[in-house]
Simulated scan of single mutants.
Amino acid sequence: MTKVLITADRVITKPADPAIEDGAVLVDGEAILAVGSAAELDAVADASVTRLRCPGATVMPGLIDGHVHLAFDASEDPVRAVAQASRDELAGAMRARAERMLATGVTTVRDLGDRDALTVELRTAIASGAAVGPRILAATTPLTSRGGHCGFLGGEVATDDEVRSQIARNVAAGADLIKVMASGGALTPTGPRMWERQFPPDRLKLIVDEAARYGLGVAAHAHGTDVIADCVAAGVRTVEHCSWRTVDGISHDPRTSRAIAEKGIFVCRCISGDWKSFLGRLGEERAKAMTETVLRMRDDGVRFLAGTDAGVPGARFDDYVGTLEFFAGVGFSPREVLEMATVNPAEALGSRSTGALGPGMSADLIVTDGNPLTDLGALRKIRHVFAAGRRSAAS
């Protein structure tokens, strides 16, 4: 790959830092060589360096989706689509979904449950250049209880030995992290209800400890208020959904919420671009309670990472910005929202080379029309996408 000097009206290195006006980023292969003013970098870059001039635009870190399921098809029945597809059919569909996500500016995804470890194969193909898509962190097969949420993916465990064996299989398959279905979920109506435990607290702790033996963190699917508390006590790395459900409705626990913040656990609220329809289906009272819990968590100091849950019904692979617009709509500033999309998920996912722009960082970046620091709609106007230095077509 050749060197590329990208110049634009502004460069956002991190959302919390001042933007560099009339800025530039010098890309050298897969990495960023320099970031600074356009005048300075243009002067030091020799004539052989490709110039990509982007007037009226912003250069910023590539977006990170902290919760996707590339094996699902976002239809009303994604379970059937996964179960009935052949291995080759599913692998081909996952490639197409990954390419679609990259075109919208998503340069890293964390896949939290697939079939046959196909995300690992796709991760390898993308890294080698044989396929086009974002960087993938793969959980492979989620751990769940007998008859539990997403048991159709093959991760049902009922004993401590089965927990150890499944984690070992995931590690052998190439997992980057471990996913546990700590509570029930909507995709599996025959299993435990969304607020109910799938594992006792001591088994959750075993899952966290066993994952740690391999140097891996745990992402916990947890809707129930009591289940969220179990996950925090066990020491998971991220809590997915975190919707504070009880048999009677929604009940935010401020003590647990503050513990999440104090322990440095991140929350992926898993809001899809279809959030307006979702809130409408909840009804006014429950919708208000849901949005209020998000604001209470922010007040408690909880750090969020953006995740679409792409692949489940209504969660498309090409509407990442819709997720961000939910948080903006309930009162988060554009800088806070951009942090959820870049630096927060990079930290939560344990990546030191993504989520920001600087010398030595991975060349994962996007060029957007306008200024997303004042208008998140700018993120729907992607001009260019670079993933590990490779330039891809924008949507």
Rank of each mutant, 00 (worst) to 15 (best):
T2Q: 12
L5P: 05
I6V: 15
A8T: 03
R10N: 02
T13D: 00
D17E: 15
P18V: 02
A19W: 00
A19S: 15
I20R: 09
D22E: 14
A24T: 01
L26V: 08
D28R: 07
G29M: 06
I32L: 01
L33Y: 13
A34F: 14
D42T: 15
A45P: 04
D46F: 02
T50R: 13
L52I: 03
R53Q: 13
L63C: 05
I64F: 00
D65R: 02
H69L: 01
A74W: 02
S75R: 08
E76V: 06
P78G: 06
R80K: 09
A81D: 11
R87Q: 06
A91E: 11
R95N: 03
A96N: 05
A98F: 04
A98Q: 06
E99I: 02
R100H: 05
M101L: 12
L102H: 08
T108R: 03
V109F: 03
R110E: 05
A117F: 13
S128T: 15
G129M: 07
G129Q: 06
A130S: 11
A130K: 12
A131V: 06
L137F: 14
A139D: 12
T140Y: 15
T144K: 08
G148E: 14
H149Q: 14
H149R: 11
G151V: 09
F152G: 11
D161K: 04
Q166I: 01
A168M: 06
N170H: 06
N170T: 01
V171T: 07
G174C: 10
A175F: 09
L177I: 15
M181K: 05
M181S: 05
P201F: 08
D202F: 11
I207Y: 04
D209Y: 01
A211V: 14
Y214I: 04
G217H: 08
V218G: 01
A220K: 03
A222Y: 03
V227S: 05
A229M: 05
D230S: 07
D230K: 06
T238H: 00
T238N: 08
T238M: 04
E240R: 05
W244T: 01
R245C: 10
R245I: 09
T246S: 15
V247Y: 13
S251R: 11
D253C: 05
S257W: 04
S257K: 07
I260F: 04
G264H: 11
I265N: 13
F266V: 03
C270K: 02
C270I: 07
W275C: 06
W275S: 02
W275Q: 06
S277Q: 11
L279H: 10
L279Q: 13
G280T: 12
G280N: 13
G280C: 09
R281I: 10
L282A: 12
E284P: 10
E292Q: 15
E292C: 06
L295K: 15
R296Q: 14
R296A: 14
D299G: 14
D300Y: 00
V302I: 02
F304D: 04
A306S: 13
A306H: 08
T308Y: 05
G311P: 07
G311Q: 07
V312M: 12
P313L: 06
F317P: 14
G331D: 14
G331E: 11
F332L: 09
R335M: 08
V337Q: 10
M340H: 08
N344M: 07
G350N: 08
S351M: 14
G358W: 00
S362E: 13
L365R: 00
D369Y: 02
D369W: 09
A378V: 09
L379D: 05
R380P: 04
R383M: 06
H384E: 07
V385R: 01
A387R: 15
S392P: 00
A394D: 01
